[in-house]
């Protein structure tokens, strides 16, 4: 009995300590985002390389997925709308569902799978190899040099790629709606504009940036939890990191929906 209570207490303390460390690191990173020191030549180089691998290199695949996805989703949704006689809801479906929900979700999954896991492994390897110790010895702040550029990349990539995804799906919608409803480009644009809401767009952009923040922060934290000189801790760190990233994605998705519909 006592052991059970001890175990619950230990788990609670661990959760509290982990959460505290996470929040402190998150706060530290957010503060450094506004610090000039974090924008030195070395950090810029890390940002450019990270951004290249996260957003530019993935672009052809990403656009291909967006076009395929756009065609599929638009085709199915338009057909269902037409059958139900709910054509008035076309704009709401595109703006309220595809742009605000689907685009950020697909983008965050793609970035988390590709870059989140890479960041997690990279930080874990640096920790195991004691490269983080090197940075400390040479007075290089890991938050400025390693974390801020990665978090910034995550946030910016999410905003840009998600917007690009939305635009691609909406442009694909022109052809699909023309084929199914015979809608002209002007009518289609009018329908979209009628349903577009600037506050919603702002919320989506904030949501994307939040996604970007956490899908890079969590892998960083999990990578830092790897044990020095213990190679086997690398896959464990990556695994834990990706599970937590998935949980974070679900939580942010739910919270953003609550904010939008309140």
């Amino acid at each position: 009995m006592i052991k059970t209570i001890e175990s619950i207490g230990r788990s609670s303390i661990n959760i509290f300590v982990t959460l505290r460390a996470t929040l402190l690191l998150a706060a530290g990173i957010i503060l450094r985002l506004f610090s000039r020191r974090a924008y030195n030549s070395a950090s810029r180089m890390v940002f450019i390389n990270q951004f290249y691998f996260t957003s530019v290199q993935i672009l052809p695949l990403f656009l291909f997925v967006a076009v395929i996805f756009g065609t599929m989703v638009n085709g199915m949704a338009f057909q269902v709308i037409k059958n139900l006689g709910l054509t008035d809801y076309l704009g709401r479906l595109l703006m309220g569902f595809v742009v605000t929900e689907i685009a950020p979700f697909v983008t965050v999954l793609l970035i988390a799978l590709r870059s989140g896991s890479a960041i997690n492994a990279e930080i874990a390897v640096m920790k195991v190899n004691r490269e983080l110790n090197t940075l400390k010895i040479f007075n290089i702040d890991v938050i400025d040099y390693l974390f801020v550029p990665r978090v910034m990349t995550g946030m910016l990539s999410m905003v840009l790629l998600s917007s690009l995804f939305s635009m691609t799906v909406l442009v694909t919608g022109i052809f699909i709606s023309s084929a199914i409803f015979g809608t002209s480009v002007d009518d289609y644009t009018g329908i979209l504009l009628k349903s577009a809401s600037l506050p919603d767009i702002v919320i989506v952009l904030i949501k994307c940036a939040t996604f970007g923040f956490f899908i890079t922060l969590i892998p960083i934290i999990r990578g830092l939890n790897a044990s020095e000189e213990e190679l086997t801790s690398i896959p464990v760190a990556v695994l834990n990191g990706m599970v937590r990233v998935f949980i974070a994605i679900v939580i942010i998705e739910v919270l953003s929906s609550i904010i939008r519909f309140i």
Binding site: I48, N49, F51, Y52, S55, V56, L59, L160
Partner: peptide, 8 residues
């Protein structure tokens, strides 16, 4: 890389 990133 810088050029591609900047352009994007």
């Amino acid at each position: 890389t810088e050029f591609k990133v900047g352009l994007f």
